[in-house]
Amino acid sequence: MHPIVDPVPTAPQMREYVAEFVDRVNARARLPLDYSVKSLRVVDRVVDGLRRGRAGRARPVETLFGLGAYAGEVIVRRAGGFWVDLGAEQRELFGQPVAVRMPDGRSWNPIGKVAKRFDYGAEESVALLYLQLHGRRRAGGPTHPGGPARPPGPPR
Rank of each mutant, 00 (worst) to 15 (best):
V37M: 06
M14H: 03
P60H: 07
V126H: 07
E16H: 11
R138T: 12
M1V: 12
V5S: 03
G95C: 01
R28D: 15
A55H: 11
V25C: 06
V114K: 00
Y35I: 09
A99V: 10
M102K: 04
G53P: 07
L129K: 03
V76G: 05
V126K: 04
Y35L: 12
R41M: 13
A127D: 13
S36T: 15
L93W: 10
V18D: 05
G135Q: 05
V74Q: 01
H2F: 02
Y130D: 08
R30C: 12
V42G: 00
G81S: 10
E89P: 06
L86R: 00
R136Y: 12
P110W: 02
A58N: 11
A11T: 05
M14V: 00
D44A: 05
P97L: 11
S125E: 00
F94P: 08
F118T: 04
G80H: 01
R138A: 14
G141V: 09
H134A: 14
L67H: 00
W108M: 04
R45I: 09
G141C: 08
A88N: 10
G121T: 02
A69T: 08
R51W: 01
E73D: 15
V84A: 02
P9H: 09
A58C: 06
E89D: 15
R57M: 12
V8L: 12
V61G: 08
R51T: 10
E62G: 13
G153P: 02
G72R: 07
S36G: 15
P97K: 11
V114R: 00
P155G: 08
G140T: 12
G66A: 03
A29V: 12
G53R: 12
R54K: 09
R30S: 15
V43S: 12
R24W: 03
I75H: 06
R136K: 15
P142V: 14
R45P: 05
E123W: 09
A115P: 04
P7V: 04
L128R: 13
R117D: 03
P145K: 04
F65V: 15
G81Y: 09
R117P: 01
A19L: 09
E124K: 12
Y17S: 01
D104Q: 04
E73Y: 08
P9I: 06
